[in-house]
Design a protein around this nucleic acid. Structure first.
Length: 288
DNA sequence: TGGCAGGGGCCTG
DNA sequence: CAGGCCCCTGCC
């Protein structure tokens, strides 16, 4: 057991923040089970005190996973005082961390995520682990590229992956052949990683940004999905006057708003994205 | 009961 | 840029 006192840390908020899909509350306890790649830990929290059920040797992995050495209070304190929406969002999710997850797992997970709901994504990731991952104690590891490459297109479609099955099939092939070089990807900076990821079949702008943010820990990444799009148009579009915005094509409007209102959070705009996403999913109200 | 809209998008023409 | 895509869920 490792016990730590941690500010700006909330297991429940992290579990519901939509960046990880294998973090679950253990029934009838206040504890959470967190699975990443082939590792597993259980953690429970009482206020700022957090207990991790792991050895001293294992802890550094989870310390990095939860980004425990970073001061999220400083991120929150840096928010523009005039931006009352963002302040409220950050307050609602002040215990969120940007996780440093397994890159391969993030690639497949976010390819799956397109046009799916979060419960659905959880179920599909779980199915991949149970069907193709190695058993680790009582849970299953995320399948390696080689393991997942053993799945036929028909098998993947049978799991209800729909049109994503062919993306996954091709990406597994690329990862096994070396065309998708994860080691190389991990060494790239943000723009290079985005360009590299987008070159693979089934990975577009949004999925690439999620892999950068949640897998490579490029916290400047700012994924724009339907929720963030809705927020940007509702909370930020009116601030700059509609004329400037209407001159832009539909697809570029969000990009423009992000450039205008989030440039100040240079190098960590993705943290703000997570606060907004969480706040919106919680119904735009503080649930504490 | 059925039709419709939308889901943490991406590819193709 | 507009459709189409697999297929499921929520809603009326």
């Amino acid at each position: 057991m490792i016990e730590k006192e941690i500010k700006n840390f909330d297991l429940r908020q992290i579990a519901e923040s939509g960046q990880c899909f294998r973090m679950t509350e253990i029934p009838e306890t206040a504890a959470y089970r967190i699975v990443s790649g082939s590792r597993m830990v259980e953690a429970v929290q009482h206020g700022r005190r957090v207990l991790f059920d792991c050895s001293e040797d294992e802890f550094p992995y989870w310390e990095e996973y939860f980004d425990l050495k970073t001061d999220y209070g400083a991120y929150i304190a840096s928010i523009d005082e005039k931006d009352s929406y963002l302040r409220a969002a950050a307050e609602s999710g002040s215990g969120i961390r940007i996780l440093k997850q397994d890159v391969w797992e993030m690639i497949i997970t976010f390819v799956i995520s397109q046009q799916k709901t979060i419960p659905n994504i959880r179920a599909l990731v779980d199915a991949l682990c149970r069907n193709y991952g190695s058993r680790v104690g009582e849970c299953c590891a995320f399948p390696t590229p080689e393991q997942l490459n053993g799945a036929s297109l028909e098998e993947l479609q049978a799991l209800k992956l729909g049109y994503r099955a062919k993306y996954i099939k091709r990406i597994c092939g690329d990862a096994c052949s070396g065309a998708l070089d994860l080691k190389l990807l991990r060494q790239m900076n943000y723009p290079a990683a985005m360009a590299y990821l987008k070159g693979f079949y089934g990975i577009g702008e949004k999925v690439a940004a999620c892999v950068c943010l949640f897998g490579l820990h490029h916290v400047e990444a700012f994924p724009i999905d339907t929720w963030i799009r809705k927020i940007l148009m509702r909370e930020y579009a009116c601030r700059c006057g509609t004329a400037a915005l209407e001159r832009l094509p539909q697809a570029r409007r969000c990009e423009y708003l992000v450039g205008r209102y989030f440039a100040g959070y240079k190098g960590y705009a993705g943290v703000m994205q997570q606060y907004m996403f969480y706040y919106e999913r919680m119904g735009g109200t503080v649930t504490r």
